[in-house]
């Protein structure tokens, strides 16, 4: 564990806590894409299966259980909780996220480290996580005034993988033959997708104006 990875995990944790706070306290999911939440639930379900087969550390197990629990809880709130679901703008959240799942799965069948069930699912989860934010970014462009909590949620979600990139650089230089091309490339693509969001987020923060993404 290094400070970059810890910062990444804490940023990821914080982003989810922000979203849970928004949904649980003000019972609203306005501006939040259900499709991105469903993709993330699938990412965690396919990546964290190893909590049943192995043990790495208490931290690792607890974080995985929290990510699994929170992602499915958020999807449940947005689909079935009769107050929260009313604030879900489903006619704006129209990104065809199913079109992301199949290509990622096919790519995982073609490009992976080992051709085993767990490894292919793990690789699939990496590819899917790289593109999972797309429905949310599209929805932000359509939502005229993005509320602060949603903006902060997306920012810390994007920041987590950026910290992971620093972690991979750090580990590459401090550990012998440490390289994970698939993880690194997926992480770079994922972070690149946030580039323009980061730009507008910092700009709105600097000018202390509301966050607005150009349509």
């Amino acid at each position: 564990m290094n400070i970059f990875r810890l910062a990444g995990d804490m940023s990821h944790l914080f982003s989810i806590l922000l979203l849970l706070l928004k949904i649980h306290t003000i019972k609203s999911c306005a501006g939040v894409s259900l499709k991105t939440q469903e993709l993330y639930a699938l990412v965690f379900a396919t990546r964290y299966l190893d909590i049943f087969t192995g043990y790495i550390s208490l931290y690792n197990t607890l974080m995985k259980m929290f990510f699994l629990w929170s992602s499915f809880t958020i999807v449940w709130y947005m689909r079935y909780h009769n107050v929260v679901r009313r604030s879900y703008d489903k006619d704006q959240d129209t990104f065809r996220h199913y079109f992301l799942i199949l290509p990622c799965f096919i790519l995982a069948l073609l490009v992976h480290e080992k051709f085993t069930f767990l490894e292919v699912l793990w690789t699939f989860s990496l590819y899917l996580e790289a593109v999972a934010i797309l429905p949310q970014l599209v929805l932000l462009q359509r939502t005229r005034n993005v509320d602060n909590l949603t903006g902060h949620y997306v920012f810390f979600l994007g920041a987590y993988r950026s910290f992971y990139i620093l972690n991979w650089i750090y580990r590459y230089f401090t550990e012998q033959n440490y390289y994970k091309w698939i993880t690194w490339i997926s992480g770079l693509v994922q972070t690149a997708l946030y580039a323009d969001f980061f730009y507008y987020y910092v700009k709105s923060w600097r000018n202390s104006e509301r966050l607005q993404l150009p349509a």
Partner: peptide, 10 residues
């Protein structure tokens, strides 16, 4: 390569 270290990240 120790598989544990292989998947020690979240």
């Amino acid at each position: 390569k120790n598989s544990k270290r292989n998947k020690d990240e979240l």
